[in-house]
Amino acid sequence: MSQTSSGEPSTGELISRLSTDLSTLVRDELRLATVEMSGKAKKAGMGAGMFGAAGVLALYGGGVLLAAIVAALDLAMPLWLAALIVAVVLFIAAGIAALMGKNKVSEVGSPMPEKTVESVKADVDAVKHARDH
């Protein structure tokens, strides 16, 4: 170590230490962030899997509920008519949902990022004009 006459490290030595300490600090922080993010990603993956399981169970529950509705209607009418009524109601609900979805999609318009395309065209024109002049 080079030190000044007062026994303290020189400016060059201090800058060298600072550089070393800073790179060590950055590496340690990156390691910590990696460990933290991998733990969070594992928890998020487990949570997403549980949401998927909940969706499947809800789907089965919906099927059982529909079967119960058919069985309840079977008390007042023939089984085939009860099943037909439930199926028609489901198809009507599906049609309404499809029309609402179609309307929402048509509101979006073109999938192209139109403002970005216009901005890029303007940038290209500006560069061309700047080059020509």
Rank of each mutant, 00 (worst) to 15 (best):
L81N: 03
A126L: 15
A33C: 08
R17N: 12
A71M: 06
T116E: 10
G52E: 03
L84R: 02
T24Q: 02
A97E: 13
G7R: 07
A82Y: 02
D125V: 02
A58M: 04
L79S: 11
M100I: 11
A33R: 09
S23D: 02
V35S: 03
K40L: 11
L99D: 12
K104T: 06
P113S: 06
V124D: 08
K43Y: 09
L90C: 08
E29R: 04
G12D: 03
G101V: 03
G61C: 08
T20L: 04
G12E: 01
K121V: 11
T24V: 04
V127R: 06
A48M: 04
T4K: 06
P9F: 00
L25M: 12
R17H: 12
A33F: 10
G45C: 04
A130K: 10
E8T: 14
K128C: 11
T20H: 04
S106D: 12
A68L: 12
D28A: 12
S2A: 13
A68Y: 08
L32W: 09
A83W: 00
I96A: 07
V64W: 04
A71E: 06
D74K: 01
M46Y: 10
E13V: 07
M1H: 11
V70N: 07
E36T: 13
S110A: 04
G45I: 02
M37H: 15
G61S: 10
S5G: 12
G47S: 04
A53Y: 00
L14Y: 06
L99G: 10
A87Q: 10
E107Q: 11
K43G: 08
I85K: 03
P78F: 00
S2M: 09
G63Q: 11
S2F: 02
V117K: 14
V70Y: 07
L84T: 07
A33E: 05
G62A: 11
A97N: 14
V124Y: 15
G45R: 05
S16G: 03
V86W: 00
D132Q: 15
P78S: 02
V86C: 01
L32R: 10
F51C: 08
L90S: 07
T11E: 03
I92V: 15
R131F: 13
G109L: 05
V64K: 08
M112W: 10
L81I: 06
